[in-house]
Nucleic acid binder design. Structure first.
Lengths: 269, 269
DNA sequence: TTGAAAGCGCTACCAC
DNA sequence: GTGGTAGCGCTTTCAA
């Protein structure tokens, strides 16, 4: 008797329509096969009483919540927005909603948090790049159905969504090459970054295929300020195009270049 | 018997500890006041059996889900990301999670969708700028507790979060003025846009306070391409700084300026 | 202090 | 075809 009061329940509808709750349930779920007249009466009652089934009660009875969890280390990371938007849209098409959680608060609490949130949902989409493989493996059982983002694990049988940085930067470089650029700058990110290494590989592949090109490596970092600071070096390197470690660096770089440009403009007038 | 099987329940723990479910419940929720030894025995059993209360069952019994809904017209809109991230973080601090929904799919289904999702949650944060005021008013009762984003309603008593575009661009212009700029460009957005009008107002306020300044209005749009196209005009207007309708326009503008800059650079060498 | 039992609202099995 | 009813797992009165 602690629940939110005043909600019309299936029993109310049953009473109003002069049938059993079971029948109302069947009608509401389209599993009804009997006198059409009965179904109509039930629907009329439901409409009259403005009845809507309780998702909570259904979830408990069905053992199915129609919700999928989305757990990432940082919801503010722009990279996740389109993933979330896509997930939400796709899930909605199948009658599912998305429950989000940010694991940043408690980095080493990621496991328990994932398990907890998974219990409220039917499946989980998890991004936990730093979680030790053993831990992930141990948890995988309780997390299934599970989808991994930006990581895979040899011991965890789960589909994964990952960015092919190597192929990505290769394609970018090839595109610039097609545009006539033969001298590129790569404004690289953190040396220890796995994704940076992948991008460097991609550029090596590119150079192997295009011996007529050269790539000047210019140190930066992972943030927009790093990009801004690298602008001068890029300008002075004499390249005709530049690739950046990530979007933030690129934004900073573009900004830095605009600066250099207006300086240039003031000079040339 | 249709629920996900194999989960250890409160009854299992009660049996294992030799107490009643009621006692286990009290211990698990810190409402227990009796033999400490009993409490310890219960906790030991819970640990042994790896028991974790079912959030679903608690929700049904308590009439409280510990979840708040976040409904917006377009999850892919960058403006919502930080709102969501902030909401999630703040909610988490109070033991709440966030259930998201994108109402873009069915624009005129916004109302029912909000009500439906609200039933799964304890409160709702809603962004429905286009919803007729009467509809919102009619729904408000079922939606409470409710927080509105980017809109208020005279008939709906709900806190709201809205951007003060007028004050925002005023502050930006004042900042540039303080930096010494006296001649600014405003790369404006859609004429019919409410937020654009607000920004124009802000600039008028600014000019009133700073008669020594001038603002050149340059037409653009709401996307990055619009910004890029406006770059040349900005460059030629002779201003020393530019303000853009929104981030996308700004990004395009910066990109366009960088282009003009490198052209300039090639020329000047 | 502790337990029995009645909900919370819905589903699904098993009879009639 | 339809209804009775026992769950789903937890909380909380009420009584002992």
């Amino acid at each position: 008797m602690t629940a939110q009061r005043g909600n019309v329940t299936i029993a109310d509808v049953a009473r109003h329509a002069g049938v059993s709750p079971a029948t109302v349930s069947r009608v509401m779920n389209g599993r009804f096969s009997g006198e059409p007249e009965v179904a109509e009466r039930v629907q009329a009652s439901a409409r009259t009483l403005a009845y809507a089934p309780s998702p909570l009660a259904r979830s408990l009875a069905l053992g199915r919540t129609q919700v999928v969890a989305f757990v990432v280390p940082d919801l503010a990371n722009p990279a996740f927005q389109s993933v979330l938007a896509g997930l939400s849209k796709t899930a909605a098409a199948d009658g599912y909603r998305v429950l989000v959680a940010d694991s940043a608060e408690s980095p080493d609490d990621e496991g328990p948090l994932s398990v907890e949130i998974r219990r409220r949902t039917d499946a989980i989409v998890l991004c936990a790049p730093r979680m030790p493989d053993e831990q992930l493996t141990a948890l995988a059982g309780q997390l299934q159905p599970l989808v991994l983002i930006n990581r895979t694990s040899p011991t965890v049988p789960a589909p994964s969504l990952a960015i092919d940085y190597r192929a990505g930067i290769f394609a970018l470089a090839a595109h610039l090459h097609a545009l006539g650029h033969r001298s590129l700058a790569y404004v690289y990110g953190p040396e220890r970054s796995m994704s940076n290494a992948r991008r460097e590989q991609g550029l090596e592949d590119f150079l192997r295929e295009h011996p007529d090109s050269r790539v000047v490596r210019i140190a930066a970092g992972a943030g927009s300020e790093d990009g801004r600071r690298a602008a001068a070096a890029v300008f002075d390197s004499g390249v005709s195009a530049a690739l950046a470690f990530n979007d933030l660096v690129a934004v900073g770089l573009v900004g830095g270049c605009a600066n250099s440009a207006s300086a240039c403009r003031r000079t040339s007038r």
